[in-house]
């Protein structure tokens, strides 16, 4: 008995709405839709920002990778030219290169 009494005393959030007029309900629905719309709009704007940032970020990362590649190629080239085989080859071909240069000059 007391249990039923307690339940009856608890505030029922829908009870107020059940008794509300149609106009009031329509107004409230409109307000909620507007609020939701604004929140959704703000969230969408942030998503647009994030997408644009991602594009700029990826472009920057691409630049970073290109710079890294350039450095790697430079280092690899330097390492190659320091290798004994390359140096021996360059030494062997030196007369030929010299001759080529002279011919070009002529």
């Amino acid at each position: 008995m007391s249990h039923a009494h307690d339940a009856h005393d608890e505030h029922d959030p829908l009870a107020d709405l059940r008794d509300a007029s149609r106009d009031r309900l329509l107004t409230e629905i409109g307000m909620l839709r507007k609020q939701n719309g604004a929140a959704e709009l703000a969230a969408a704007k942030r998503e647009v920002l994030a997408s644009r940032d991602a594009v700029y970020g990826m472009s920057a990362e691409l630049g970073e990778l290109r710079a890294q590649l350039k450095t790697d190629v430079k280092n690899a080239r330097q390492a190659m030219m320091q290798a004994p085989t390359w140096r021996v080859g360059a030494f062997v071909l030196r007369p030929l290169n010299l001759a080529k240069r002279l011919l070009r000059k002529k």
């Binding site: 647009v48 994030a50 997408s51 644009r52 940032d53 594009v55 700029y56 970020g57």
Partner: peptide
Amino acid sequence: FDEVGGFSEN
């Protein structure tokens, strides 16, 4: 700000 996508939240 709009053009570059605001501040990066990363």
